[in-house]
Design a protein around this nucleic acid. Structure first.
Lengths: 363, 363
DNA sequence: TTGTACGCGTTATCAT
DNA sequence: ATGATAACGCGTACAA
C-alpha cells in the first residue's frame, strides 16, 4: 500500500473549533516530518534568504503529500502582506466584448500565478465603485476595470475615489477605456479607428452615411462618432443630422436606433454603429424590415468581437485586439508602479468585409 | 468642511513593516472611536449574539468612515473560518456557452454577497484538478465546475480526488455536466433533448440525417448522439454510418467535420451538430463550399447560446437555460449539504428556426 | 542550517 | 453591554 494513512492527521485537541472539516495545517506537516514549523514553511514555499537541507526538504514534502496538505492562501496573504489575486470589473461577462477581455486577463493572471476575482456590475455603472471597494477588502493586488467612462462627473468622482482608496490599500489599478481617472490605462484609439473606417467606406464609394451613435454621455461612443464626423466632413460628405441617431450602447440600442433610422430617417447607403453589438442589432432591425444588407444598405461596426465570424453578411468593423488588451491591462496593473500613470495606446485596424462592398457592388 | 481628516490614521509605530500602504485596521478605528477592539468589531460587522449601544455604534461607524476603514477579508476569513468566495472553473470564458453560465454564477454569488474566483483551463481538461486545488487553497466556500466530462477514467479519478480534497477542506461542490463524480450536479437532459430534436426535424420531413458527433470520449457529445440515433432509428431512418462524423467539440471541429461530410460523405438533407458552436462552424464550412443553408441542407445545433440571435439563417437548436443553470449550480453548491449529492435535472426545449424549414420548403 | 517567537487583522470566548 | 485575550495559519526576524 503505497498510500499509507496519516500518522496524526486529525488533531483531537480542544483547540479546533471544528469549523472547517479537519483542516491539516503546516504545523501538522511539521510535526509529521519531525521538523519545526519554520523549516516546514521554508521547505514548502522556499524562503528567499534561507535554504533547507535536501533530506529535510524531502521529508517535509513527503509529509505534506501524505497529509494532503494545502497551504491556506488567506493565512499566507496575512503573513506575507499581499494576496495573489487580481480583480476584474466588467459590465456583463456574457457580452462577447468583455468575455474576450476577460479571457486575456485570466491568461495573463494564470501565467503570473495569480487568480482572478470577477465582478459584474450587470450594466449598472453606479455599482462600479462598490465593486472596487469589494476588491479592496480582498486586498487584491490589482484591479482591471473595463468599460467606457461616462461624461458624468459625479460618477467619475466616485470611481476616482474608490480607485484611490484601492491604491491606498496597496493595490494597483489599470483601466480599459479613457484615461481620465488618473490611473494607468489601456487607451483604444477610438477616434483614429473611426476616422480610418469612415475613410475606408468612403473609398468604397459610400457617400450618404448613417451613424448609430450610442448614448450622448458615453465617452467611447462620443469619440467614435467624432472620428466619423470629422473624417466625413473632411471628405465633403458629412452625414445628415437626422441620420445620426442616439441609443443605448447595446444590441437592443442598435436595433432600436436602426429601426428609427430606417423608418423615419433620411436615406442612407451605409450605417456605421459605434460598436459591434449595436451593429448586430442593426442587422436584426434591417432583417425585420426586409431591408437587404448590403444590397440596400451597408452596415459596419467597431471592435471585431469574435461573434462576427458567424454573422452573414460578414461585418466590416475596426479590429481591436481584445484578448491582448486584457493581457496588457493586467500587466500594466501588475507592472512597476511609477508615480505617473502609464498609458498604453492601442490602434485599431479597419477590416472591410461583405457588409460594405460599396453602394454599386453586385451582390 | 464635512470631510475632515483622520486624527491618527497612519500608525507610525515600528510594528508596521510597511508592506501595504498604511493600512487602516480595526484597531485604529477602535482607538479613534474610543472603544475596544471587540466593540468596534461588533459595531461594524454586527455579532450574532452581542449587540452594541446605539451611540457607540454611531461613534464607531463615524470613525470608520473618517478613516476610510476597509475590513480585511483575508483576516475575516481566518477568524471566521470561512471565506466569502466561490470558485468557477470553465474551459474558456470567451466561449459564449461558458460566458452565459458564468453570468448566472456571478449573479447568484452577487445576490448572496459572495465574490467569484474565475479560473479557465484554456481548453485543457488535464488542468482542471489543479484549478480545483487552487480554489482549495483559497478556501473557497464552493466551486462550480462546468464542462462535460470525458470517458477517461484516469482524468475523472484525478478530478474526483481533487474535489474530494476540496470538500475535505470544508468546501462544497457542484458540477454542470454528467453526474459521475459523486457530487451535486446540474444535469442537462442531453439524450432527451437530442431525441426531441430528431423527432421535430423528422416531423418537418427530413429523412437523411448527418450528425457532427464531436469527440468519441466526450460524454455530453455521446449522449446527444445517442439521443439522435435512437430517435431516428425508432423513426425508421437511421443515419448512414458515414454521415456520423467525429471531431473536436469546438467551432473549428464543427467546421472541419462538416467539410468532410460535404466533401466525401453521403448525401444528407439535414445536419445536426452536438452543440451550437459546432453548428456555427458547420455553417461556415457550408458557406466556404457555396452550399446553401437551408436550401441545400438544413443545420441544427444544441444549447441555444445567445450568439444565435445574430446568425442567419436563424439556427434551430435545443434551448438550454444557461444563465439559470449557472445560478442553479451556485445555489446547489451553496445550499444545505446533505450526505447524498443532489441532482438537478434540466430539460431542453426544441426550437425550430429558419435553418431547418424542411427539405421541400420554399426558400 | 534550524528553531523560537512574534505579528498579520479579525472574530469569538469569557470575564466583567 | 463592554473589554481583555486567545485563537486562526503562516512568514520571518532573530537567536542558537
Amino acid at each position: 500500500m503505497p498510500d499509507d494513512e496519516p500518522t496524526a492527521a486529525a488533531r483531537p485537541g480542544p483547540t479546533g473549533r471544528g469549523r472547517r472539516g479537519a483542516a491539516v495545517t503546516l504545523s501538522d506537516v511539521a510535526r509529521e516530518a519531525g521538523v519545526s514549523l519554520a523549516t516546514a514553511s521554508r521547505a514548502i514555499n522556499g524562503s528567499a534568504t534561507r535554504t533547507v537541507r535536501p533530506d529535510l526538504q524531502e521529508r517535509v514534502l513527503e509529509a505534506a503529500a501524505r497529509l494532503r496538505y494545502s497551504p491556506d492562501a488567506n493565512a499566507q496573504a496575512m503573513a506575507r502582506g499581499r494576496t495573489s489575486s487580481v480583480g476584474l470589473v466588467v459590465h456583463d461577462i456574457a457580452d462577447p466584448y468583455f468575455a474576450a477581455i476577460a479571457a486575456g486577463v485570466t491568461r495573463a493572471a494564470d501565467r503570473m500565478g495569480l487568480t482572478v476575482t470577477l465582478t459584474s456590475t450587470q450594466h449598472d455603472p453606479a455599482r462600479e465603485p462598490a465593486h472596487v471597494e469589494l476588491l479592496r477588502r480582498q486586498r487584491a493586488r490589482a484591479v482591471v476595470v473595463c468599460g467606457g467612462r461616462r461624461d458624468d462627473e459625479a460618477a467619475n468622482a466616485a470611481m476616482r475615489s474608490a480607485l484611490a482608496e484601492f491604491r491606498r490599500a496597496g493595490g494597483s489599478v489599470a483601466l480599459v477605456s479613457q484615461p481620465l481617472l488618473g490611473v494607468s490605462t489601456v487607451v483604444i484609439d477610438n477616434t483614429g479607428g473611426a476616422h480610418a473606417l469612415a475613410r475606408a467606406l468612403h473609398g468604397r464609394g459610400y457617400r450618404r452615411f448613417g451613424v448609430l451613435a450610442g448614448p450622448a454621455d458615453h465617452l467611447t461612443a462620443r469619440d467614435r462618432v467624432r472620428g466619423l464626423l470629422t473624417a466625413l466632413t473632411g471628405l465633403g460628405c458629412p452625414p445628415h443630422p437626422d441620420a445620426v441617431v442616439a441609443s443605448a450602447f447595446t444590441r437592443d440600442g442598435g436595433q432600436d436606433a436602426m429601426g428609427r433610422l430606417l423608418d423615419r430617417g433620411p436615406a442612407v447607403d451605409v450605417v456605421v454603429a459605434v460598436n459591434d453589438v449595436m451593429a448586430l442589432g442593426a442587422l436584426a432591425a434591417a432583417r425585420e424590415r426586409r431591408v437587404r444588407v448590403p444590397r440596400q444598405v451597408g452596415v459596419a461596426g467597431f471592435d471585431d468581437i469574435p461573434t462576427l465570424r458567424d454573422v452573414t453578411p460578414s461585418l466590416s468593423t475596426v479590429h481591436v485586439p481584445l484578448v491582448d488588451i486584457g493581457e496588457a491591462a493586467t500587466q500594466l496593473a501588475l507592472g512597476p508602479a511609477g508615480p505617473e500613470p502609464r498609458l498604453l495606446h492601442v490602434a485599431g485596424s479597419v477590416v472591410l468585409r461583405d457588409s460594405t462592398p460599396g453602394p454599386g457592388a453586385v451582390s
